[in-house]
């Protein structure tokens, strides 16, 4: 039977909601699921992890070094806990992408990046070519299966559990060669892009940073997260943490509203798992309309306020 260790993602001592997606994937693999939380001290993150349905126990690893999450200091701690686990999984976020190959290399095993479907304990689908093709991969033998989970492909798990939280001490030499100098996080009150049920995104057509208020206003009206195309980020309208697409965030909200976004392949790669895609664009030939469930040709500066008023 599988015994799965999930590396929790934390931000500022809180559990990041993408961790639940990794649990949802682990539940499909089946077996026992533990979550390892690496923070400075036991707190909110371990409590939140213990509530995720399907989790057997939470391993709290407290270490002053874990106040700043860095791959080089985290990976040896994960490996120190690896004994007895058949699988080690994390969400395929920038943190998971940074850490897990380091875990795999320490264990001397390959990694399955971006698991999008489970076909068995050691057989998975993963996207290649920006999601334009899907590889079904198998891990022969019995080496520890290290993988990252495509958050857009798995639902949230309920939070009605009450797993035990155990203090785990790990003895690993942590390198001193990597220091966190600072972080600039967008934060804000809007729902997290990667787990939001609704997302409104703006593109080059929005025209300026000031004009993005149209997008923010519509998003706030429907309680949505806010995203942007690469063109809007490269033009300096909004910061990079809002970028949706192949090189930004890959998301799967129930409702995605693309405003003034033409629909470049790299943007579509980030939204193809969305429930319903709405496109608003002045150009009726924009490729975004080829994937949209509902398309409206029109001036976004007229349509968005009208839409906001009607909702």
């Amino acid at each position: 039977m599988a015994k799965i260790l999930i590396v929790a993602e934390t931000l500022g001592g809180e559990l990041h909601p993408t961790t639940g997606k990794a649990v949802a994937c682990a539940a499909q693999i089946g077996g026992e699921i533990d979550i390892a939380v690496f923070t400075e001290a036991k707190g909110a993150a371990a409590d939140a992890a213990a509530k995720l349905d399907g989790v057997s126990k939470v391993l709290q690893v407290s270490n002053a070094e874990n106040g700043a999450i860095r791959a080089a200091t985290l990976a040896p701690q994960v490996v120190a806990l690896a004994e007895g686990y058949t699988h080690i999984l994390a969400a395929n976020t920038t943190t998971g992408k940074d850490i897990m190959p380091r875990v795999a290399a320490l264990l001397g095993v390959p990694q399955v990046t971006d698991i999008m479907a489970v076909h068995g304990e050691r057989e998975f689908d993963r996207p290649i070519y920006a999601g334009n093709a899907v590889n079904r991969v198998k891990a022969p033998g019995d080496f520890t299966l290290v993988g990252t989970v495509r958050t857009a492909s798995f639902g949230n798990v309920a939070e009605s559990g009450s797993a035990a939280v155990e203090d785990a001490s790990v003895s690993a030499d942590l390198p001193a060669h990597t220091r966190l100098v600072g972080q600039e996080t967008g934060g804000g009150d809007r729902p997290d892009l990667q787990t939001a049920a609704k997302v409104v995104s703006g593109g080059r057509g929005v025209g300026s940073a000031e004009n993005f208020s149209v997008i923010f206003s519509l998003a706030d009206k429907i309680g949505a997260g806010c995203g942007a195309s690469r063109a809007a980020v490269d033009s300096g309208f909004v910061p990079n943490d809002m970028q949706v697409g192949q090189t930004g965030k890959i998301i799967a909200p129930d409702l995605y509203v693309a405003v003034g976004i033409s629909g470049a392949i790299q943007h579509l790669a980030g939204i193809k798992d969305a429930g319903t895609i709405v496109a608003i664009n002045t150009d009726e030939n924009a490729p975004i309309f080829e994937v949209a469930d509902l398309g409206l040709v029109g001036d976004l500066f007229k349509v968005c306020p009208e839409l906001e008023a009607a909702l």
Binding site: P110, E123, A133, N135, P140, G295, L296, E306
Partner: peptide
């Protein structure tokens, strides 16, 4: 000489259902 993953098969991603165009904000809502 390290363990490797095997590719079982490669396929197209699931296609999305075709959508439709709406004429007005009212119709969209």
């Amino acid at each position: 000489d390290v363990p490797k993953l095997e590719v079982v098969s490669t396929s197209n991603p699931p296609a999305r259902e075709p959508g439709r165009m709406v004429k007005s904000v009212e119709e969209l809502v």
